[in-house]
């Protein structure tokens, strides 16, 4: 009897937690799937399928300030590329990041939304309008 009520409580808590999560600004499953497909096509060989990167060469995308922090900076890295000395969690990476400016605003938004909510990351979604805004500031 006691065991069942504990189970029921746990179940209730879980359901509530799940409901609470789904109340957050929802990322449509379709966008995540698109983001994942685009990630595989444009990002995976360097950053790896699980976002772990390559030691000394290509930075990891797992719980780093670059990924979780300022959205606009992250969008800028994709649009402009990055070829400068960057320290991430005490390590340095030598390969250049090529510009992905040829991708559409929506595609970049989908990729970044996927990256920011995968590999253990939990950060807000990126909207195509966010990308558009940053793109407008780049010559």
């Amino acid at each position: 009897m006691g065991r069942i009520s504990i189970l029921t409580c746990l179940l209730l808590v879980t359901v509530t937690a799940v409901m609470a999560q789904t109340k957050k600004p929802a990322v449509a499953a379709g966008r995540l799937a698109k983001g994942q497909a685009l990630y595989k096509q444009h990002c995976m060989s360097c950053h790896q399928e699980n976002g772990s990167g390559v030691p000394r060469m290509n930075p990891p995308l797992i719980k780093t300030e670059y990924v979780l922090g300022d959205k606009n900076r992250l969008i800028g890295v994709l649009l402009k590329g990055l070829n400068e000395e960057v320290e991430i969690n005490g390590d340095y990476y030598s390969n250049p990041m090529p510009s992905q400016a040829a991708l559409k605003d929506e595609e970049i938004a989908d990729i970044l939304t996927y990256v920011r909510s995968s590999f253990g990351n939990k950060a807000s979604a990126v909207a195509p309008a966010d990308v558009k805004k940053v793109r407008a500031t780049i010559q």
Binding site: Q48, E49, N50, S52, G53, V54, P55, P60
Partner: peptide, 10 residues
């Protein structure tokens, strides 16, 4: 080795 970061030594 699925991911290079998994290698303990290289």
């Amino acid at each position: 080795v699925k991911y290079p970061g998994d290698a303990q030594h290289r």
